[in-house]
Design a protein around this nucleic acid. Structure first.
Lengths: 144, 144
DNA sequence: TATTGTTATACTCTATAACTATA
DNA sequence: TATAGTTATAGAGTATAACAATA
């Protein structure tokens, strides 16, 4: 194995472990909160996009449609999103964030990310800059 | 909210989404494979550390003892780790990787990380350097 | 009485397969 | 017949609470 391939294997291994561990910590923050991490993620996505069909939302979040069905149902039960009919295609639906959902996003994001926020404040400016760039790169990887 | 706090909130939000998405992709690679991502992670940890008690292993992986009990049981069933008695404390056990486990680590790591490896190869040298630094920072955050 | 580990139980997240309704 | 979405089912991953064995 060449040095470059070896370094990449090490990078893959390190990145995998780091991501698995941080994901675990982030999910653990959900205890006692109102909505789950997946629900918050989908809600944020809808908030940015405006309104999407369930299929579009599943594609953007990178999950299969049945997984998104459950997330949407939970958000709808909580009154945070609403469905309306698609104007031209009776099979599809349009999902959009309600006023209550918009209010909740701000509350939840700050509540759920309090732990992470605190960790980030403790870093140096340079370290935060690295994470900012890394987040963009990782997002690009995971979207492919 | 100050500009710095706002930027940190954005960073936390971006980092959270990136980590959730990459974690999902990494777990999805498990399909068709032999052991799960959690099992591989514990196995790699034991491989590096030599031999650990279940409690030590749980602490290093950042999970609760009952979660590690299940992971160890699966690895033991597969013959990849073995237990032996603790020399001085009858309550504890020593878990270590078997020869079969050592062989499997190399196979699995390369098989499981093939997807991630390919993504990393497609990046620039600078992007890989950012991820390398980010992995260290994230691991430090998640360990606290 | 304190510590280590396991068992019992439950919930989140996600997938695939099968089904329904509409195009 | 093809597409969008849901329902049914299953498995991974993890936690807390209760228990057993040993210190």
């Amino acid at each position: 194995m060449s040095d470059i391939a070896e370094r990449e294997r090490t990078l893959a291994s390190r990145l995998r472990l780091a991501v698995v561990r941080l994901n675990r910590r982030l999910r653990a923050q959900s205890s006692g909160s109102n909505i789950t991490l997946s629900q918050l993620s989908a809600l944020s996505c809808l908030h940015k996009a405006g309104a999407l069909t369930p299929g579009e939302l599943a594609a953007r979040e990178g999950v299969q449609p049945p997984s998104m069905t459950r997330v949407i149902a939970a958000l709808e039960d909580a009154g945070l999103v609403a469905r309306r009919a698609h104007p031209t295609d009776g099979r599809q639906a349009i999902v959009e964030v309600t006023d209550a959902g918009r209010t909740r996003i701000e509350e939840e994001v700050s509540a759920r990310e309090r732990w992470l926020d605190q960790q980030l404040v403790d870093l140096t400016e340079e370290e935060r800059a690295v994470l900012f760039q890394a987040a963009e790169i990782i997002d690009r990887l995971a979207s492919r």
